[in-house]
C-alpha cells in the first residue's frame, strides 16, 4: 500500500517536472529577448530539477543514491542563479538593452511603461 502511494506520488512528480521542463523550453524559444528567455530558462533550472530529482529520491529511498541525488539538486539550485546572473550581467555590459514594457502587445496604447 505504501509502496503504491510512493510510486504514484513520485511518478506524478516526475511527469509534472517533465511537463514544466517542456514549458520552460517552449519559453526559451518563444520569448522575445535574452532577458525574458533567462526567466524561461529559470523554470527548467529550478522547478523541473526539484520535481524530477524529488521523484527519483522517493524511488531510491534512504540510500547513498538519495544523498547523491540531493547533492546534485543542491548544486544545481546553488549554481544556476549565478550562471543566470552572469549571463544577464555580461549581456548588459555588452550593450544589450532589455526590452521593456508590453512590447508584444500591439495596438494597446493604454499600457506603456
Amino acid at each position: 500500500m505504501t509502496e503504491l502511494l510512493v510510486n504514484l506520488l513520485s511518478g506524478a512528480m516526475m511527469l509534472t517536472g517533465g511537463a514544466f521542463a517542456v514549458i520552460g523550453g517552449i519559453g526559451v524559444v518563444r520569448f522575445p529577448d535574452v532577458f525574458t528567455r533567462l526567466h524561461a530558462a529559470g523554470i527548467t533550472d529550478t522547478l523541473a530539477p526539484l520535481l524530477i530529482i524529488g521523484g527519483l529520491m522517493m524511488q531510491a529511498g534512504w540510500s547513498i543514491l538519495s544523498f547523491k541525488l540531493l547533492l546534485i539538486l543542491l548544486f544545481l539550485l546553488f549554481t544556476t542563479p549565478t550562471a543566470s546572473h552572469a549571463t544577464a550581467r555580461a549581456a548588459v555590459v555588452d550593450g544589450l538593452q532589455p526590452l521593456l514594457g508590453a512590447a508584444r502587445r500591439k495596438g494597446d496604447g493604454s499600457s506603456n511603461t
Binding site: L15, G18, A21, V22, G24, G25, V28, T44, G55
Partner: peptide
C-alpha cells in the same frame, strides 16, 4: 519523463 527532457533539450 526522459522523452519530455529530450524535447526540452531539442528546444
Amino acid at each position: 519523463t526522459i522523452l519530455a527532457i529530450f524535447t526540452t533539450m531539442g528546444l
